[in-house]
Amino acid sequence: MNHEIPGDAAWSVPVRAGRTVTLTALADGANATVLIIGADRLDRLNIPDTLKSQMSARIKPGMVLMSDRGLALATVIASTLDWHDCLTGALPDRLLLLELTKHGFGEADLHGCIHFFSKVAVADDPRASLAYVPDHAHAGDTVTLRADQDLLIFVSTAPHALSDGPAAGVAVQLESPSHVEDPVLREEAVRALRLTRELIA
């Protein structure tokens, strides 16, 4: 299916294991803030575990998005961008909270999120200072995730909290390919995928 989320909106969608989700920026400076909850409706995307197990401070292709309890939620299969911010959190977002509430979740589930299409640069100074990069994403930029277990994906298109630009829409395309090859992954990501496939996928 295809759906275009307008700017400053929120949406949620169930995604079966094995399906792919492609997000496409519909204008320059788009932002897609994403929360993911796993098949058991408790196990959530855990940004610190995702980062430390793959030695990265950003989300990029070839990373597995990991849950609180050490399972693979989704794999970043491809992207036109090699930096998606995940260090700066989301402002309180009434529409995103409503989407969580529709599925029986709430404020307690506002965990660390990914800001697809946004980049916040890190300086090599004593405090690792941050600066939003305004010209990072352009219309047509994409990122594709493969669901590695049944997921609920929550998307907000509110502008990035550090951006002073206008909100932009994001297109979502769900597909059911017969097989998606694993990208090149670190050993830790391979372990998470293997465990997930053995247990629940």
Partner: peptide, 9 residues
């Protein structure tokens, strides 16, 4: 940023 260790992680 590093989170807490867990048995699973």
């Amino acid at each position: 940023v590093g989170g807490a260790c867990s048995q699973e992680s």
